[in-house]
Design a protein around this nucleic acid. Structure first.
Lengths: 228, 228, 228, 228
DNA sequence: TAATAAACGAGACGGTACGTCGAGTCTTCCA
DNA sequence: TGGAAGACTCGACGTACCGTCTCGTTTATTA
């Protein structure tokens, strides 16, 4: 192959990884638009040219980090205990736990900024990170008893992820109460007696059941209901 | 007042506005992290010092733009025809229409980047722009017949806005189908486009088959309405 | 004037001089082609941009140094005691003394390199340094009793200077013996260290004396002549 | 021997020459301090390592070029017709002719710069190029009828060469008039009203024709004398 | 006829300096 | 005395070469 027969010294894997790690650290420490290639190269013990040889731009570098998985401590699996609502609530909690860590939140914000500035990063970000998270969430919704159809599962997953990202961007903490309300929104629609956020709207519970709609929904709702 | 009695030349309103407009244009044209104060000053016909006199940093400048309303063609009112689902669907459509314009999307993305990088901008962004949009949406949900409680209305509003922002960031178009699914998610919870998708919930079948969109929405709305 | 009415901060004379001095030192220390603008700026306590603002290239910087007189410890006056030969021999000795100092020789070599690489520097070098030296030497020759005509005085001056420069470039020391021979060449032409060296052509002696031109020359020649 | 019995591939003469030719071309095209080993290697179709294997530095490379004779189109023989003055004037003309060619002058200037920057190159330059030229000129002077003694012949030769080099460095053209004056200076010492530059010195004709031998030199001197 | 070893082209490596751009500060003049 | 113009220091940018170091290949010599 033309590839294998290429002459000249081969690319140093060690250096490649050192650069990516340095980039991740810089990203967490200074954010996307303060990224300094000089600093990254120095931290990686590499020459600047070596960085530029493989990554023509800041965004390409960040994109590679994404691809390499350095930036996705987010992709934890969605549990499956049979109760979709409870499962997603648990997953959401873990997710929020990650985002609450200063380093991770800085990283995600930096990544959001990178995605905002660069189409390439945005697409990579979507395809390699949030897309897969989203798909995992959507898959869990599809396999729930209510058999939520594909498009809706996607929309629901994006609503969850989008709301979390939004809170992160505007610096609003994702409190347990908020997560509850979010899950309620996705699982109960308008009938939000909420997973307990609502107080004293006992009637709400009825109405939800009264919906007479899905047994699946019912059970899911019931699952998170404090009082069966 | 001490203000009015201050000696010397008074601040030039003309210049102030020229700076803000130049900033907005730069933001739309180059994004947040490529903002150049030099360019802004030149475009505004102002000295750099004049810019720095009033705005100590890039983010303060952007924040002022936000405050001034240059960046919020987004705050269009939520209609109220009595049908909350239809109203919000309509509002979402308008919203998506704004975001589909290249200049506006560039602006919002730049603003998201600014918010990601700067706490100050993030808070301003929230308080002056998305917060009020969110509140308008939440308010509409609260006044709906289902009397969605406060926390849930907020969560639902953020789910809508967050999903839209997320789509913007990852460069996924907000198709009408997606908006439909989003509204369905918020209004119908688990029952998707129809209860029929659920396993063994006969009642749902009708609505799902009724499918389509407009009709579906109608029925979906009806379906989730606790009190017909 | 358009110049005097220019607005904005005025050029800092302090900085200008610091840059030129740093350049001179760099030139003596590292030579022309190892000049580092970074180092010059740092040594001068100036920003690189300030250097580049005023001097678009290394050669322009060096040329300015020349013009400013930093590089011409060479222009010592040619004495005039009435004996041109003795005067120029003395001047040549002083000249050689300068060139023997390591710092000065490094500077001149650097300058020669700069002149070799850049037309601009070459012309400046000629007009501001060697040209004036040459003219001083030529002037002394013209005012000698032999009234050497203009073009020849120039050629003789360039022969002297050129020979010195050549010795400097090829690292040959300018010994007193060499300086003697050089003066002999210029003042006695073919007759070398003395008319007697010629192969018995008495006429030659006549012609030289017969020139009638100079008793002065005669005397000057006699001065260094071993055999009167 | 140890040399001939060495194992392994032998040095490629083709490559060696290609490198030297590329160096010469680079030198003429860009000058000494802009020499790029990268470019030379590329132009020679050689790897950088091959260049470095044989020439540890830019100056060694240039020195080798000198040694190889690539840089000495200058060493043309000094004619010997019996009239030293006329011979050297002719040689000087040829010499000036070489220096007038842009490529050659660029090469010599580059070489002067190299000599200015590097002791090694300077010594090589002297020993292999100008030294031999100088010696040829000096030898012609010594065999002249006036039997100019060794030291003076050297000084005179260096005066000629130095003056030419100086003119080259400061970008002053070596006009025929200048060459005449130079020859006059060396051959006539103080009495020169200048050979060719002077008009109306009929006597000059005689001297030139008078050729002969010793008288020739004598007469040549006389020829330039305005006053017999 | 192998095995061995040096030189070869290619080109990636850690670095240094380049010349440019922008940030934010500090004058100087004008209105 | 506010504001334009613009020079200042500082630091990062992305590029060009430096001289060194693998790579895989080619060509001699030696076993």
């Amino acid at each position: 192959m033309s590839d294998s027969s290429r002459r000249g010294r081969t690319r140093s894997e060690t250096t490649r990884l050192a650069i990516l790690e340095a980039t991740r650290d810089e990203l967490a420490a200074h954010g996307y638009d303060k990224l300094s290639i000089d600093r990254i190269a120095a931290a990686a013990g590499a020459g600047k040219q070596t960085v530029y040889r493989w990554y023509p731009s800041k965004s390409a570098l960040v994109a590679e980090c994404v691809l390499e998985g350095y930036l996705s401590p987010l992709t934890n699996p969605v549990p499956d205990t049979g109760d979709a609502r409870r499962d997603l609530r648990a997953w959401l909690d873990t997710f929020a736990g990650h985002l609450a860590r200063p380093r991770t939140s800085a990283l995600i914000r930096a990544l959001a900024a990178a995605a905002a500035e660069s189409d390439d990063v945005a697409v990579r970000f979507y395809e390699d990170v949030t897309g897969s998270v989203e798909e995992a969430v959507a898959a869990r919704l599809r396999t729930a008893q209510d058999r939520r159809p594909g498009a809706m599962a996607t929309a629901a997953a994006e609503a969850l992820i989008g709301a979390m990202l939004y809170r992160l961007l505007v610096r609003q903490p994702a409190t347990p109460e908020f997560l509850d309300s979010l899950i309620d929104t996705v699982f109960s629609g308008t009938r939000g007696t909420g997973g307990g956020t609502d107080s004293g709207t006992g009637g709400g519970t009825d109405s939800s059941t009264g919906g007479g709609t899905g047994g699946g929904t019912e059970r899911a709702t019931a699952a998170t209901d404090p009082a069966p």
